[in-house]
């Protein structure tokens, strides 16, 4: 059985070392927070200027001055800190964040990331903090379905969509397999409802059995 979005989030959360400083991208990566073990000591960074971000805010705890990168109301945990945008991105660019988790349209076997634009001529370009995160965090984990709706693989020999960053992705978590990308190529560390051989047959990327 392939993994649900929740199961993918649980597996990513499992692989985050205790005490890591982590940035969760907008959308599916946000769900990873729900699966972090209590007491893990993982500290969440949000690009709009906060470390120690807590869970989403509800009802009377909603504060319009306290939001996450997706502009949703959130809460602060004890030990939280606030800082301005240049500091927040210096923190990223300077390699101080351990892990950032993002979605993707495509990832190449060399770790190139495409997740900000499909290059469609009528699309309005919008990049946000994706390019800064991609090259800044010590490790970039991608969460995505392995195949697009039309069946095309999203782990590819080289990205056809405009790049977000070059050689920046270290792991790819998908609904059917987890890949570690390193100098040797794409190493399959887990599969879910698919065999290694079937996976190898459906991807144009050389795979390494773990």
């Amino acid at each position: 059985m392939s993994l649900s979005r929740q199961e993918m989030a649980r597996i990513v959360a499992r692989d985050i070392p205790d005490g890591s400083y982590v940035n969760l991208g907008i959308g599916q990566p946000t769900m990873v927070a729900d699966y972090l073990r209590a007491g893990s000591g993982v500290i969440l960074h949000t690009e709009n200027g906060m470390l120690g971000m807590g869970p989403p805010a509800t009802s009377d705890r909603i504060d319009p001055d306290l939001t996450n990168a997706g502009k949703q109301p959130v809460t602060e945990l004890p030990g939280a800190s606030y800082f301005h945008h240049a500091d927040s991105f210096a923190m990223m660019r300077g390699g101080h964040l351990d892990i950032c988790i993002m979605g993707a349209f495509q990832v190449s076997a060399a770790g190139d990331l495409a997740n900000w634009s499909t290059g469609a001529p009528d699309a309005i370009p919008a990049v946000g903090g994706a390019m800064d995160l991609a090259i800044g965090a010590k490790q970039v984990f991608v969460m995505m379905t392995l195949f697009a709706k039309d069946g095309k693989p999203k782990l590819v020999p080289s990205c056809t969509y405009p790049l977000t960053g070059k050689a920046c992705v270290s792991r790819v978590y998908t609904d059917v397999a987890t890949f570690v990308l390193d100098d040797g190529g794409a190493r399959v560390t887990e599969t879910f409802g698919i065999s290694f051989d079937e996976l190898a047959a459906r991807l144009d990327v050389p795979l390494i059995r773990r």
Binding site: H84, H85, P125, V127, G129, M131, D132, G136
Partner: peptide, 22 residues
């Protein structure tokens, strides 16, 4: 913004957020 952009009535320079701040 979307309407003005599609109508060609506004210029846009997209800058990565950290580059914008810096």
């Amino acid at each position: 913004f979307d309407g003005l952009y599609r109508a060609g009535k506004i210029e846009l320079e997209v800058v990565p957020q950290g580059n914008l701040a810096e």
